[in-house]
C-alpha cells in the first residue's frame, strides 16, 4: 500500500504520445489483419507488439522511480534574467535513469546507477515580470524507452522566488539628503564589532581568525568616518514616468547607490525604508519594488 501511496503522492501521469497512439493503432490493424487472414502468426505478431508496449509502460515507470531531489536555496533575479535552480538528486534504486527532462523539455542529465550518490542538476526558468514566482512542483518526465508514452511525476518543490524589477536608467537620480552624513563603515578605521557573513559582503572584511576559532564566517564592522550623506529615493521623484517605468527607474537608482556604497533610504507609497547600504537593505528595497501592486489605474482603464 505504501508503494501506491507513494505513487499518489508523487502524482504520476502517463500520457500516450502521438507515436504511441500510432503504435497502438497499428497493433489493432495487424490484429484485424490476423483475423482477416485467420493467421495465427500475425496474431502472434500483434501480441508481441502489445507485449512490448506493455513492458514499455513498466520500464518507463521504473525509469522515473527510485530517485529523489531537493532544491537548494535560490537567489532572486531581475525580470528577464533566468532563475537558476540547483537540484541535488540522489539515486536510490541502483540503476541508471535515462532521457529525463523537465516539462519544458529541458534535458536533464542521465542519472548513473551509483546508489546514494548525489548529483546536481541545474534548472533555468526564464522570469518575465517582477513579482513572486510562486512555489511550484518540479515535474520530471521521460519517454523512455520507446517514446510511446510520456510519463511524468513530481520530483520536488521549487521554492518561491522574488523576481526583482529590471533596472532602467530613465531619469537622473534626485539627491534628497537626510541631513547628516551616512556612516561609511567600509571606509572607517575603528573596529566596532563582528557580525555574521551575508552574501554580498566584502570578502576582505571576513575575520579569518574568528573563522578558525568558531568555524563560522563573520565579517568585521567598523565605526568610522562619515561618508557621503545618505539619500532618499522617493516615488514622487519619478513622477512623469509610467507606473512600471517608475519602478524600473527606482530599481536603477537603488542598484546605483549600492554599487557606489552610498547609503540610501527608499520612500514608496505607504512604505518607507530607512537609509542603509548593506546587502539585506538592498534585498529589502528591491523586494519592496518587486511586490509593488500592479498599475491600478491602467487596470481600471483596461476594465
Amino acid at each position: 500500500m505504501s508503494f501506491f501511496r507513494e505513487l499518489l503522492r508523487q502524482s504520476w501521469r502517463i500520457r500516450l504520445t502521438a507515436s504511441g497512439a500510432g503504435f497502438l493503432l497499428l497493433c489493432g490493424l495487424i490484429f484485424l489483419l490476423g483475423i482477416n487472414y485467420s493467421n495465427n502468426l500475425i496474431f502472434t505478431f500483434s501480441f508481441l507488439l502489445l507485449g512490448c508496449f506493455g513492458v514499455s509502460i513498466w520500464l518507463g515507470l521504473r525509469n522515473l522511480s527510485d530517485f529523489e531531489a531537493r532544491c537548494l536555496p535560490v537567489e532572486s533575479v531581475h525580470a528577464g534574467q533566468p532563475v537558476q535552480y540547483q537540484l541535488q538528486v540522489r539515486e536510490q534504486g541502483g540503476r541508471a535513469h535515462y532521457a529525463l527532462s523537465t516539462l519544458n523539455q529541458e534535458v536533464l542529465n542521465d542519472l548513473s546507477d551509483s546508489p546514494d550518490e548525489t548529483q546536481t542538476w541545474h534548472l533555468r526558468i526564464d522570469s518575465e515580470t517582477r513579482g513572486v514566482l510562486p512555489e511550484s512542483a518540479m515535474r520530471v518526465q521521460s519517454e523512455w524507452p520507446l517514446g510511446l508514452l510520456r510519463i511524468s511525476r513530481e520530483l520536488c518543490q521549487l521554492p518561491e522566488v522574488v523576481i526583482f524589477p529590471s533596472a532602467k536608467d530613465l531619469r537622473a537620480m534626485q539627491q534628497h539628503y537626510k541631513g547628516s552624513n551616512a556612516h561609511l563603515h567600509e571606509e572607517a578605521e575603528a573596529l566596532a564589532g563582528l557580525r555574521d557573513y551575508q552574501p554580498g559582503d566584502n570578502l576582505r572584511r571576513i575575520d579569518w581568525r574568528a573563522m578558525a576559532r568558531r568555524d563560522q564566517l563573520q565579517v568585521k564592522q567598523f565605526d568610522g568616518a562619515a561618508g557621503d550623506p545618505s539619500v532618499w529615493l522617493r516615488w514622487e521623484d519619478t513622477e512623469g514616468l509610467g507606473y512600471e517605468e517608475r519602478i524600473h527607474c527606482l530599481c536603477h537608482w537603488i542598484l546605483d547607490c549600492y554599487q557606489r556604497g552610498q547609503e540610501f533610504g527608499i520612500a514608496l507609497p505607504e512604505q518607507e525604508y530607512q537609509p542603509a547600504c548593506d546587502f539585506p537593505h538592498l534585498q529589502r528595497s528591491l523586494t519592496a519594488l518587486a511586490l509593488m501592486p500592479g498599475d491600478l489605474i491602467t487596470q481600471e482603464v483596461a476594465q
Binding site: I35, S38, F43, F47, G51, F53, V55
Partner: peptide, 22 residues
C-alpha cells in the same frame, strides 16, 4: 530487455485473448 520482458505478456494475450478468425 523490452522483448524478453514483453514475452510473458505476449504469451498471456496469445493464450487468452478471444481468438476470432475469418
Amino acid at each position: 530487455k523490452v522483448f524478453l520482458l514483453g514475452l510473458p505478456l505476449s504469451a498471456m494475450l496469445f493464450v487468452t485473448a478471444p481468438r476470432i478468425q475469418g
